[in-house]
């Protein structure tokens, strides 16, 4: 066991080379290479040049930093292709993208509330949490607030968040035979997780509503759970 905690040979127990594992490593050149290469490779991947991992950095440090849209587009493209290999239908694919977004949303909610510092509060009203999504979450993700927030006329429990040109879809053209698909289902997953995490259980789906002016216009349909409306109805009106 003491060997495990020995800082001089941190890779010994995991080395695929039996000679190292048995602890009788001789200082020949090929051995020292096999010991050093993985160390170099992993340090380049996980650590910044300052030798600090992402977890050592302050949470607010990367608040204003920007990402390349092109690299995101390539990553998101790969995510879609990966999801596409595992599913049979369009609905399944949207579900997969939704799940990928969901796990981001769960973490994002914590981060955003942490960053709000003292002014952070727990939203208890439907309108409050929707404003939070349309303003704070959207501004963090895309650098601009959502283009609209509407209440459904037909259904009491449905709200619509409108994005005229979703950043995730800007380079994506969906083929005609899959016209039902909207890859912003990924963003819908993020929104769903933020709402769920704030105790507003809901279903969020993305729908394409192309217009002359905004051919990429997307509407996120937010359908709240019954329990949310029940709670809302007994809350005092102010």
């Amino acid at each position: 066991m003491s060997n495990l905690h020995n800082p001089a040979s941190p890779f010994v127990p995991f080395s695929p080379n039996p000679a190292i594992q048995s602890g009788v490593a001789s200082p020949t050149t090929p051995l020292s290479i096999s010991q050093k290469t993985p160390q170099l490779g992993s340090s380049n991947l996980r650590y910044a040049s300052s030798r600090k991992s992402i977890y050592d950095r302050h949470l607010n440090r990367t608040q204003r930093s920007e990402l390349s849209k092109a690299s995101f587009a390539f990553l998101f493209g790969e995510m879609i292709q990966y999801a596409q290999k595992q599913v049979s239908g369009i609905q399944d694919l949207e579900k997969k993208l939704n799940i990928q977004g969901y796990s981001i949303g769960q973490r994002l909610l914590e981060l955003l509330l942490h960053r709000e510092g003292r002014s952070a509060k727990r939203e208890t009203r439907v309108l409050g949490i929707l404003q939070f999504v349309a303003q704070t979450v959207y501004r963090h993700l895309f650098g601009k607030p959502a283009d609209g927030l509407e209440k459904s006329r037909d259904n009491e429990d449905e709200y619509m968040l409108i994005d005229n040109d979703p950043a995730v879809n800007s380079y994506i053209s969906v083929p005609r035979e899959m016209s039902q698909l909207n890859c912003a289902a990924f963003v819908a997953g993020i929104i769903e997780a933020v709402l769920d995490g704030s105790l507003f259980p809901s279903r969020v789906t993305a729908h394409s509503v192309p217009t002359e002016q905004y051919p990429m216009k997307t509407v996120f349909l937010i359908k709240f759970d019954e329990s949310v409306l029940e709670r809302e109805s007994v809350m005092p009106n102010n």
């Binding site: 292709q81 380079y171 994506i172 083929p175 005609r176 051919p215």
Partner: peptide, 19 residues
Amino acid sequence: DYVMKNPFYQIEMPIRCES
């Protein structure tokens, strides 16, 4: 931008990308 970054485009195949 609009062809190579589109995940539904197969490389070397005819381009059918709306955007």
